[in-house]
């Protein structure tokens, strides 16, 4: 469903993403794991067609994100790292707007359904600007899901919300398994381990390891992902 080949992005002198390649199968939840500045956001932005790769290619559902940008984009639901909101709209108006923009047949109904799913239905008439941080995060998730896209790309969806809400959001994401292909980025190891079928560890723009959370641990002879991760990072630093 997602196919990335030798994808690179250069910002001036800085190679933010360095020839990464990976695939994500339908129904799979793939985690993009790495420290801050590793290149996760940059990768996702290239996948969603927001910015072009410097070299290499990426395809969503078989459509190249540059050449067939429109087709690729219409198969993606995207939650950027910083939740993009219109503070003056109501919750329902906000979700309905994105549903309409993405060509959902019955946008109002779809919006209500997704708000209910994310437990925001009692806030449907509230202005976005009056929502709590956790609710805003869920609202961002709602707009990524409202048009029921085959591919969902979530950039650090649990960042900055309280533990109770983190659990709710993770449950929501886990529930997308089978029906959707999910690419989720995080710098929290336990999160990746908990909800991902497969984890891709990137550091300084390069893939340093990938596999099932369990396999990775076995292969690298580590007790948990935490140490796998530290191992990678340290090895990189020494090199």
């Amino acid at each position: 469903m997602i196919e990335v080949k030798d994808l690179s992005k250069r910002y001036g002198d800085r190679l933010a993403v360095n020839a990464i390649s990976f695939k994500a199968q339908p129904g799979e939840i793939v985690g993009l794991l790495g420290p801050n500045g590793a290149g996760k956001t940059t990768t996702m932005r290239m996948l969603t067609g927001f910015m072009p790769p410097t070299s290499g290619s990426a395809a969503i559902g078989g459509f190249d994100v540059v050449e067939d940008s429109f087709e690729a984009r219409s198969r993606v639901g995207y939650l950027p790292e910083r939740v993009p909101l219109y503070p003056d709209m109501t919750t329902e108006g906000y979700v309905t707007f994105w549903a309409k923009l993405r060509g959902v047949r019955q946008p109002a109904q779809a919006a209500r359904a997704v708000l209910e799913r994310l437990h925001l239905d009692d806030r449907s008439k509230t202005l976005v600007r009056n929502l709590s941080k956790g609710m805003r995060q869920r609202l961002g998730l709602a707009q990524a899901l409202v048009h029921n896209p085959p591919v969902i790309i979530l950039d650090e969806p649990t960042i900055g919300i309280d533990p109770q809400q983190v659990i709710e959001v993770r449950e929501t994401i886990a529930a997308l398994r089978q029906s959707h292909t999910v690419l989720i980025s995080t710098h929290i190891l336990s999160e990746a381990e908990q909800i991902c079928d497969r984890v891709i560890i990137i550091n300084q723009g390069k893939i340093v390891a990938q596999g099932k959370p369990g396999d990775l641990r076995k292969k690298l002879n580590a007790a948990n992902l935490e140490s796998v991760f530290l191992q990678m990072v340290n090895k990189d630093k020494r090199a």
């Binding site: 932005r45 969603t48 067609g49 984009r73 219409s74 993009p84 993405r102 707009q143």
Partner: peptide, 14 residues
Amino acid sequence: REGTLELLLTSPTS
């Protein structure tokens, strides 16, 4: 500034 441009540009809208 609000970041909504990123969503607009990644939506299937011309």
